[in-house]
Design a protein around this nucleic acid. Structure first.
Length: 227
DNA sequence: TGCCAGGCCGGGT
DNA sequence: ACCCGGCATGGC
């Protein structure tokens, strides 16, 4: 578990996640990447940037078809236009678009609020919490579930919440030295990097990477030098 | 050519 | 509490 992290980090190095310049961009990207290749999301974000629309107020005020046209490359554009607007309206109403205001809200409560927003499921909520709001929440996704099950960390068919509590229990209980409890900031950094590495390891469409024969987490598919 | 990508919702059993 | 169909573009 912990060793797998060390191994992945040695093989791949820091992933510098989330790929986005601002917290608003991260949140927008979290919605756009739902069941969609990141490559396509990049095009949509480029369109939004060109329109100076990486902005909660701007997106909230757009017409649905106007927004849908900008995010077309990300797929599901009609669905996502609606979801994006509901998310942006949430942040506008909740904190006037100023995310710093949310600092005083407890993580669990904030998670519930996010889950109540249309278009925000567990993974999207947790991605926002971890990558945009610096909360110590471990993000689960399809890769994480596949890799974890194959490694025997938890059984096949494990639910999202069960997998999340597995990672948070396993990593949160001890620090890197194996000693006492970690600081929240340290957990945020660890969860951030670990999830990014799992996606990198599990993604068949990832860029070529250094050969690593011993890596137990390599996907079966063609990828880089592993094909 | 076909399959799939960093899900989520709504309706059905 | 699960299970399923729908949503859509672009890359390999």
């Amino acid at each position: 578990m912990r060793r797998a992290y060390e191994h992945l980090f040695k093989a791949f190095g820091p992933q510098h996640w989330w790929p986005g310049e601002t917290r608003e961009e991260i949140i927008v990207g979290a919605v756009l990447t739902q069941n969609t290749a990141w490559k396509n999301v990049e095009k949509a974000i480029a369109n939004l940037k060109r329109a100076r629309a990486i902005d909660f107020h701007r997106i909230a005020a757009m017409t649905p078809s106007e927004l849908a046209e900008l995010i077309r490359p990300a797929g599901y554009f009609n669905v996502k236009a609606r979801r994006l607007q509901s998310v942006c309206r949430f942040f506008v109403e909740r904190c006037g678009g100023n995310l710093d205001t949310l600092r005083s809200i407890e993580t669990g409560a904030l998670r519930e609020e996010l889950l109540a927003v249309h278009g925000v499921g567990r993974e999207t909520a947790d991605s926002i919490l971890l990558y945009a709001l610096d909360r110590p929440v471990f993000v689960i996704d399809a890769y994480t579930l596949r890799i974890g099950a194959r490694r025997g960390w938890f059984p096949e068919g494990t639910t999202y919440e069960a997998a999340r509590s597995f990672f948070e229990r396993s990593l949160g209980a001890s620090s890197a030295q194996g000693g006492g409890a970690s600081s929240p900031q340290a957990l945020v950094a660890l969860y951030n990097e670990y999830h990014a590495l799992l996606v990198r390891a599990g993604n068949r469409h990832c860029k070529p990477r250094p050969r690593c024969e011993a890596c137990p987490l390599r996907p079966a598919g063609p990828c880089g030098t592993d094909a």
